[in-house]
Design a protein around this nucleic acid. Structure first.
Length: 284
DNA sequence: AGATCTACCTGGTTGC
DNA sequence: TGCAACCAGGTAGATC
């Protein structure tokens, strides 16, 4: 389940394969994978100059100067790049020239070196968008994305969360509050901050929120250093699994012993998500 | 208006 | 063994 650390890892490992490559063609295999007003063809002729990330979105940024031989380029709105949301099972991988689509390949981009960027997804949830200025301003999800947790800073985080309502886990998962956090890193950071996932945000002290920010950044940075967490589908663009799943304190460990106090970890539903916590170490 | 619930989707696992 | 039921989860859209 690609969250911030996984998408960041994919961006870093994908960059060497696609940076400087012109997109010379493509193939849309599953129509629903392409979202937004722009057709796939609009991206043809552009060159990738940077691979980035915004929340859980992976971004291929284009050179803004369009290929000179495209007669439509003069009037067309410039294409800023491509935005990929991997949802749960999406994958990006560069294959050799001539590789045929796999069973779950949804979209392919042909690179000028002959290789092919595959966008695979078992569950058909993943999406790609062609980004223009206009298309981005008309995309509610993009417009409402909250700040990046790793660059927000502690004071801004605390102030930002003091204004939130509802339980803390739902708040962490809300992408318009904070971008990039999913089920794994919500549970892991709440454990480290010793806060119950069901705790109401308004009942938390500034000190608790401060601890939560420290825990969140620590968990995210450790996970990035381990190339993310591989539960089942996730792989880097090199095909490698991440290793942070070996360091989980709570996620997927219901019924097992707490790594701190050895009491049995409990499972419940919070914000409609399976949630694991230590009833002894974590408090309201 | 903002919080909360459900559908979307399919492979893997569990239970009878 | 076979098959049905259930589970995973991020977001859009509906509902409260």
């Amino acid at each position: 389940m690609p969250e911030l650390p996984e998408v960041e890892t994919i961006a870093r490992t994908l960059a060497p394969y696609v940076t400087g490559q012109q997109i010379v063609g493509g193939e849309l295999i599953t129509a629903s994978t392409l979202e937004g007003p722009m057709p796939l063809q609009a991206a043809y002729g552009y060159t990738v100059n940077r691979v980035g990330r915004r929340g859980k979105l992976l971004l291929l940024h284009f050179d803004t100067v369009m290929a000179e031989n495209d007669e439509n380029s003069a009037k067309a709105e410039p294409i800023l790049g491509l935005a990929f949301h991997l949802r749960m099972t999406g994958r990006l991988f560069v294959y050799p020239q001539g590789t045929e689509p796999h069973r779950h390949t949804r979209l392919i981009l042909n690179l000028c070196n002959g290789k092919r960027l595959f966008f695979d997804d078992v569950r058909k949830f993943a999406r790609m968008r062609v980004m223009t200025e206009k298309a981005l301003s008309a995309w509610p999800f993009w417009q409402s994305l909250g700040p990046e947790p790793l660059t927000l800073g502690k004071d801004a985080f605390v102030e930002h969360f003091l204004r939130a309502k509802g339980n803390i886990k739902a708040t962490l998962l809300n992408q318009s509050r904070l971008a990039g956090i999913g089920n794994i890193y919500a549970d892991e950071s709440l454990f480290r901050a010793q806060i119950l996932p069901s705790a109401q945000v308004q009942a938390l002290t500034e000190k608790q929120l401060s601890m939560l920010y420290t825990a969140l950044c620590t968990v995210l940075n450790e996970a990035i250093a381990e190339c993310g967490s591989s539960i089942r589908d996730y792989r880097t663009a090199n095909g490698d699994a991440g290793a942070f799943q070996n360091k989980f304190n709570v996620y997927g460990r219901a019924g097992q012993a707490c790594t701190v106090c050895a009491r049995t970890l409990q499972k419940s539903k919070v914000a409609g998500r399976t949630t694991v916590f230590c009833p002894s170490c974590q408090h309201c």
